[in-house]
Nucleic acid binder design. Sequence first.
DNA 1: GTCCTCACG
DNA 2: ACGTACGTGAGGACC
Length: 752
Amino acid sequence: MDVQALAGDSVDNIPGAPGIGVKTAALLINEYGDVENLLAHAEEIKQPKRRQSLQENAELIRLSRELVKLDCDMELDFTLCDLEVKEPDPEKLLAFLAEMEFRTLAKRIAEKLGVEPPAIPEPEVEPDPEIAAVPFDPDAYEWVKDADALQVWLDRINARGWVAVDTETTALDEMRADLVGISLAVEPGQACYIPLTHKASATDDLFGSDELAEGQMDPSQVLDMLRPVLEDDAVMKVGQNMKYDAKIFARNGVSVAPIDDTMLLSYAMHAGLHNHGMDALSERYLDHIPIPIKPLLGSGKSAITFDRVPVKDAVKYAAEDADITLRLWELFKPRLHREKATTIYETEERPLVPVLAEMEMAGVKVDREVLSRMSNAFAQKMAALEAEIHELAGQEFNIASPKQIGEILFDKLGVEGGKKGKTGAYATGADVLEDIAAEGGPGAELAARILDWRQLAKLKSTYTDALQEHINPETGRVHTSYMIAGANTGRLASTDPNLQNIPVRTEEGRRIREAFVADEGKVLVSLDYSQIELRILAHIADIDALKEAFRQGLDIHAMTASEMFEVPLDQMTPEIRRKAKAINFGVIYGISGYGLARNLRIPRKEAQEFIDRYFERFPGIRAYMDNTIAFAKQHEYVQTLFGRRIHTPQINARGPHAGFARRAAINAPIQGTAADVIRRAMVKMPEAIAGLPAKMLLQVHDELIFEVDEAAATDLEATARAVMEGAPMPAVQLSVPLTVDAGRGKNWAEAH
DNA sequence: GTCCTCACG
DNA sequence: ACGTACGTGAGGACC
């Protein structure tokens, strides 16, 4: 994109045309390096309205950038974009910032503009004046160089009974990361950093020396000195994302307990309101933007690891993190109770940390040979398909490019019904290609082959190839990481790699699971909740027919179909059952006529009739939905059976956002309650299976996977099933039974 | 970096 | 008139 293009007659591809919006202006500034350079080029735009709006928005962004001095300018630019203002309107900006409770930013911008700062209501709980009163001073942090200095800190920690801890390492992957240094904080503003393995890197010899920097302590001496405190029941260890630090310490022979976690405190109280990373929390609650890590590490190819950061810089950065963590903890702890989040935090989030840490460190064995063989087979098939596809298309092109596929199908071959999205590109998703393939017209064969190719490309790049990269050379296993505070609903999210989306729905994809194997003499056991979300819906919405069906162990989709379409169960056809199943899921997702129609590929009118009939037969569902929306509108949150709150700040918004917010609000208590159930099962599991030669390895939302000695598999299965089925108790007595299906085998494909 | 696509529950 | 099924993460194209 450049200014010349913007100056052209066609405005079709310009976001925000005919004016030039904040977002486009931000992108252009990025493109042109800085505002001055862009404005110089903007003169060339002939169309006055577009020229003027670009100039104004660029000015607005410049003003904002000057005011906040953010390292990451684009972040602010896009904050401005959220305003969706086409004209720079300081009033709207300030109102938005007020709504988002960006106090400092709003105040500074108001000052600069010479207007009254907007009135922003203070948070429910006043920040502790002592915490707020202590300024952040990077020069006040102590560089701990010897045992005497460290002992002073240990004495202070023991006297206090708590300490904020943060580790600095060489990598984000805890299983490959080496410990570089440790920071501690005991009071706001009072923090230290203990450097351990920083390299002595002269500026002109950045990567040359492996010599250690001066003024550091011996790692094992420090760990030996810290161990009594880190393992002391009477000393609370506070961290931000403690699972990370706990794993680092565990790999260094120290088991940290008890722990508190500021990220999880924030998540328990405020899921759905904002994210829970330290930078966001610090800015929000402490009015302080932490020292960014980027300038210290660099980025891209020239990025360095933390052990190459000069110690004097590391002290300021690392100690500040511990300082911030401690301040956040002192703010959050008393607030937890008022936000009614104590139970969720204490029974689910906090106890989950050591459980997940164990699972992640255990990892799952993956057979590289199996993946490698499959990868080669996929490559061969793809090559054959590629030739076929180019032949059908009459030209060579990049099959991985949706844009090129769209042009060939719709422009070159003249397939009807091509739809362009908001970026002006044809949609070529699987649903579109499936329709074209089914039509049998021009391009049908091509679309079908592209679908085949895409499936293989996905399996190869995301699974057979990428998974091999994740096999830890030391353990021969794959160690995923679970984000506890990732999903608003209470679900976990698996990353690096994501082991919660390993293929299963197609035969070809399912074979990837053959590469996930049990160690010698062991088997994998998989246990999954049957229909947990529908059971929870039946309970929450109190639907007698559904509850009774679950109690009798009936086929719930067939039962729904029978009820809705008045077909006796013994005359049920797969087609009718399929429709009922889609409706059942639709209900969980906050059904809409449009969505159901798209899913079932039926006319919208018909879909709406299904929904109407469903509500007629199950009026309790309608009531649940209405009540949930009403509750959400009043409180701006919804909650699960266990009291987990999921905030829904958009629920009272108008416009297209409203629909999303409503459906999410309907779904959240159901999905969230299911998430609570399995979280509770996971928390109880270690003690229950302690006597068995078994390890819990993976969680996939409604499924737990264990690795167990062959001889103990039956025991493990019974024990784990009992824990899972009884997980809601005693907090919640469900009016439907939870049932758990189990399987076992030498690999995940067999076990599932 | 963003968009599109697609894998899972 | 318009266009949404809920919740996620990752890879590749493209700018």
